[in-house]
């Protein structure tokens, strides 16, 4: 399972200013903490970054990769910033993200092909949020087709069913649709396409004491249906303990009494 740490985000009260001031300490510290806790990739979210986004992304990639030995998931809608990050990235990066929107396909697909990056394909179009698993499938097929047209290796594609908060009125049923979509995405191709979710979206707006349960059980259900990767908060100990338990039950790691002490 690819666990992508979500903490380096421009929206954060400490990280946002550190990004703008090019202050590496808080960023490096958070990168190390996430990797120590078990993340094997880190998301670097700079938002739309309309002003000098390219310089910021390149600086972040070099700063973070100078401190930890994991690949990064570059998270911005700004294609210039995206390319600046990809150009200095060591190893195989991940692009977060394209969607079914022709404009985003046109801006991100060529970069994924040029840099042989992994690519998140979000089941979303300019027309809005899909209503069920079938609509998600339709977008996924468009993204898959676009990959083939642009020469993006399907092995590098990670389809994201777009997780919504369970607290949104009228959207509760969407959670189950996401699980169904993950199962259906896998059947689109042989070898199966990979899947990813932004996990904590589900518990956005829920009470803090319910977050680990919502995230953890949702993750477990997705894992049972073939999920390959998730963007998560590795510093949530209770949730990470659930992931470690899943790894043991799945026979991905040798059981021992102190398995929770390990990554």
């Amino acid at each position: 399972m690819l666990l992508i740490g979500e903490k380096i985000n421009v929206m954060s009260k400490t990280i946002g200013p550190a990004m703008k001031e090019r202050n590496p300490e808080p960023i490096v510290e958070l990168a190390k903490a996430q990797v120590d806790a078990g993340a094997n990739m880190l998301d670097i979210n700079i938002g739309p970054a309309t002003k000098a986004g390219d310089e910021m992304m390149a600086w972040l990639v070099e700063t973070v990769q100078g401190a930890v030995d994991v690949p990064l998931c570059l998270d911005t809608t700004n294609p210039v910033a995206m390319e600046a990050g990809l150009a200095v990235h060591k190893g195989q990066a991940m692009i977060n993200s394209t969607s079914g929107d022709p404009e985003r396909i046109a801006s991100m697909m060529p970069l994924a092909a040029k840099y042989n990056s992994k690519l998140i394909g979000l089941a979303l179009t300019e027309k809005g949020i899909p209503r069920d698993a079938n609509e998600r499938m339709a977008v996924a097929v468009d993204i898959m087709t676009a990959c083939m047209e642009h020469g993006v290796d399907l092995e590098n594609l990670y389809l994201d069913p777009l997780v919504l908060s369970i607290t949104v009125p009228g959207a509760q049923y969407q959670t189950l649709e996401c699980i169904n979509a993950v199962k259906m995405f896998k059947e689109l191709n042989d070898p199966p396409l990979k899947t990813v979710v932004g996990l904590s979206n589900i518990s956005n707006g829920a009470l803090p004491e319910t977050k680990a349960l919502l995230d953890g059980i949702f993750f477990t259900m997705l894992a049972c249906n073939g999920l390959d990767a998730a963007i998560i908060d590795p510093l949530e100990t209770e949730f990470m303990n659930m992931i470690k338990t899943i790894k043991v039950i799945n026979n991905d790691t040798v059981f021992c009494q102190s398995y929770l002490e390990l990554c």
Binding site: V254, C256, E261
Partner: peptide, 14 residues
């Protein structure tokens, strides 16, 4: 016992 082997390694490294 591979589980106990792993456990002993953890105990010793701790």
């Amino acid at each position: 016992d591979v589980n106990m082997a792993k456990q002993l390694n953890i105990l010793m490294t701790n």
